[in-house]
């Protein structure tokens, strides 16, 4: 066998080492930030911290959570993520169900499909969308963050393909038992689609937690900034001109440990849902790939 040869054994050891290093490279920057956030100010600002805290302290986190701007943004992000995921999933389910029918049994299906798919291919672009949100009068409200992206056509296509994979006999049986289309969706299709619903919900949650650009352009008051937008403005751009920040915020972000703590808290929800996400996403990709 090939793996018993000397040459292959040498390759194999080198391969394990190489892959091991690459994997570590993906996680070490995050470990470094975590270590800095738990270190004392002096070793952190003179760049002595590696991957383990020096002079362990939770000072940076106490300061971060004592800041009203930060707490506010955390709440806006949580509210946005929950609302957007619920609305998004309801929309995906009720849209995917009719589109999963055969052309012959639901006339107009392909017209609806093209109407929606065209929005993937072409878009009006940034400026017209911005003017629209302005004209609708939803600037500085949570709806500016939720409504424009509420309908994800990609997710509809994934869900549609999942529905199509369910046995046709179920629908026929429901029809013979006297169920209308709404009942068929509610009592037959949705209960059977929980794996797909779970996958898409997690993806939607990650998307909305991470979204920062819309918050930055549609919100003028810092009280309405979601966390990602706040971090973008305060830590990445270090721009304090557009918004009036608390004095304590200004003082805090000049400290490396506090910046690290804020970045880590921004990543934490993703790190927490990641194990569940990982279990689903391979399946999720396959679910979209199966076509007839």
């Amino acid at each position: 066998m090939y793996y018993k040869t000397r040459g292959y054994k040498v390759f194999s050891i080198a391969n394990y080492i190489f892959l091991g290093i690459l994997s570590l490279l993906c996680i070490l920057p995050i470990v470094h930030i975590l270590a800095v956030s738990f270190s004392s100010m002096a070793p952190a600002s003179s760049n002595l911290v590696g991957f383990w805290p020096i002079g362990f302290t939770t000072d940076a986190y106490v300061k971060t959570f004592g800041n009203s701007n930060f707490i506010n943004s955390l709440l806006v992000s949580a509210q946005r993520t929950i609302l957007a995921t619920v609305i998004g999933m309801v929309l995906v389910l009720v849209t995917a169900f009719p589109l999963s029918k055969e052309d012959a049994s639901f006339r107009g299906r392909s017209l609806y499909t093209w109407f929606l798919v065209f929005t993937i291919l072409f878009s009006g672009g940034l400026i017209p969308s911005y003017i629209l949100v302005q004209k609708l009068g939803i600037m500085d409200t949570i709806w500016a963050l939720i409504l424009p992206g509420a309908l994800s056509v990609w997710n509809v296509i994934l869900m549609m393909n999942f529905f199509r994979g369910l046995p046709k006999e179920l629908e026929e049986a429901a029809y013979l038992d006297g169920a209308g289309q709404f009942k068929t969706l509610m009592l037959v299709y949705i209960p059977l689609s929980m794996p797909a619903v779970a996958t898409l919900s997690l993806f939607t949650m990650v998307y909305h937690w991470n979204a920062w650009f819309d918050g930055m352009i549609y919100m003028s008051d810092i009280k309405n900034y979601p966390l990602a937008s706040l971090l973008q403005t305060i830590i990445v751009q270090q721009d304090f001109s557009k918004i009036n920040v608390d004095a304590s915020m200004l003082e805090n972000v000049s400290q490396r440990t506090v910046r690290a703590a804020q970045i880590f808290i921004g990543a934490l929800p993703i790190l927490m849902v990641y194990p569940f996400l990982q279990r689903f996403f391979v399946k999720g990709l396959v679910l979209g790939a199966v076509k007839e």
């Binding site: 009006g124 629209l132 309908l151």
Partner: peptide, 29 residues
């Protein structure tokens, strides 16, 4: 039998019109 299917698509079509097709018309600027 199919009218509920059309009803189900109303929210998606409305959202697509307002947030996708209206900005496309905005390209006139």
């Amino acid at each position: 039998r199919n009218w509920p299917l059309h009803v189900m698509l109303i929210p998606a079509v409305l959202l697509a019109i307002v947030f996708q097709y209206v900005p496309m018309a905005g390209i006139i600027i």
